[in-house]
């Protein structure tokens, strides 16, 4: 009885104070939280990373402005939501994509993923991930060709073939699987000097941004904790597919897009559940699908798909985790 009492919010009659939150404030704070990962992408992948990010952000903003203008709605590009979508999309692309590819992805993500549903607040799926999945399956070779990060490039002469840690483990390329004396070590994975999408490699930078959002309260602990916890547990317990190399759980933690997905995409306010219990379910589902795809699926990485699938489950989760109305 006591526990129940404490969980009730105190609702007082009007007049009430405005909390001071607004869409621009939230979005530009998220932008600030993405700054470390942005700097890390420049440091590890150089000028090309900046080009991808610029094209993606500009196309996202442009697409949003054109659609809102055509629909006769107020143009809200300064609220930063399109910019965040564009930057997140760029973070999920590898360095070697042609420069038009982020533009196509951003236009599709904003146009079909967001504005076909009525714009910000109505979209069902994460627009950045819709854009990524669209370009991924339209131009698969571009999206699965990896370049080494800048620092590894100097150390290694034939830098033509490279792989992400997860991809190397899947294909059983022993020389590229993280090990103390291999091309990259666990510390490299932590700093970000590994193959991968431009914004996902640096676990440290993403963690900084994620913790910042947690402290500010824009991200609640349930989703990242459930997501990351499930992945660590399942990749630790479950056996790998025949022919693949088993990675340690902390390699699964650092090696792919888990931090980027768990802190910045699975916590999107529009496309994920609103209650704490719902967030736990959402994170569990994401972790389960990510682990299964990584260990047994056709792709080495499953963060993107797991979040999209759970986005589809979100209305259902919200329906079943709705708090009981007081007095019923």
């Amino acid at each position: 009885m006591k526990g129940k009492k404490e969980r009730l919010f105190k609702v007082t009659p009007a007049p009430q104070l405005h909390g001071g939150e607004s869409i621009p404030r939230v979005m530009w704070t998220v932008m600030l939280a993405l700054l470390p990962a942005f700097l890390a992408s420049l440091y590890f992948f150089g000028w090309k990373a900046f080009q991808i990010e610029a094209v993606s952000v500009i196309t996202a903003i442009f697409t949003e402005a054109v659609i809102q203008k055509l629909r006769g709605r107020p143009v809200t590009i300064t609220d930063g939501s399109a910019a965040v979508t564009g930057l997140l999309l760029a973070f999920t692309l590898p360095m070697d994509v042609p420069i038009w590819l982020p533009a196509v992805g951003a236009a599709f993500g904003i146009g079909v993923g967001k504005h076909a549903f009525g714009g910000l607040g109505h979209n069902i799926f994460n627009p950045a991930l819709i854009g990524r999945t669209f370009v991924m399956h339209s131009w698969l070779p571009f999206m699965t060709t990896w370049s080494p990060p800048r620092l590894a490039m100097y150390a290694q002469v034939d830098a033509v073939t490279y792989a992400t840690p997860l991809g190397a483990a899947r294909e059983a390329v022993i020389s590229l699987v993280p090990s103390p004396d291999g091309i990259f070590s666990t510390m490299d994975m932590f700093w970000g000097s590994i193959g991968g999408c431009i914004g996902e490699t640096s676990a440290l930078a993403l963690l900084l941004g994620g913790v910042f959002l947690l402290i500010r309260g824009y991200v609640r602990w349930q989703t990242p904790a459930a997501f990351i916890g499930t992945v660590v547990l399942l990749t630790w317990v479950l056996p790998v597919k025949e022919g693949a190399i088993a990675l340690a759980p902390y390699h699964h933690l650092l090696g792919g897009g888990l931090f980027l997905g768990a802190f910045f995409m699975a916590t999107d306010m529009v496309t994920t559940p609103v209650t704490g219990a719902g967030m736990l379910v959402f994170g569990l589902g994401c972790g389960l699908i990510t682990s299964i795809v990584r260990l047994y699926g056709g792709f080495p990485e499953g963060v993107c798909y797991s979040i999209l699938v759970m986005n589809a489950f979100t209305p259902l989760i919200d329906k079943f985790t709705r708090p009981r109305i007081f007095g019923t």
Binding site: T133, F134, V309
Partner: peptide
């Protein structure tokens, strides 16, 4: 879009 999400289960 749901079909695109389910592509992740390929293989």
């Amino acid at each position: 879009l749901m079909s695109m999400a389910f592509l992740g289960f390929t293989g």
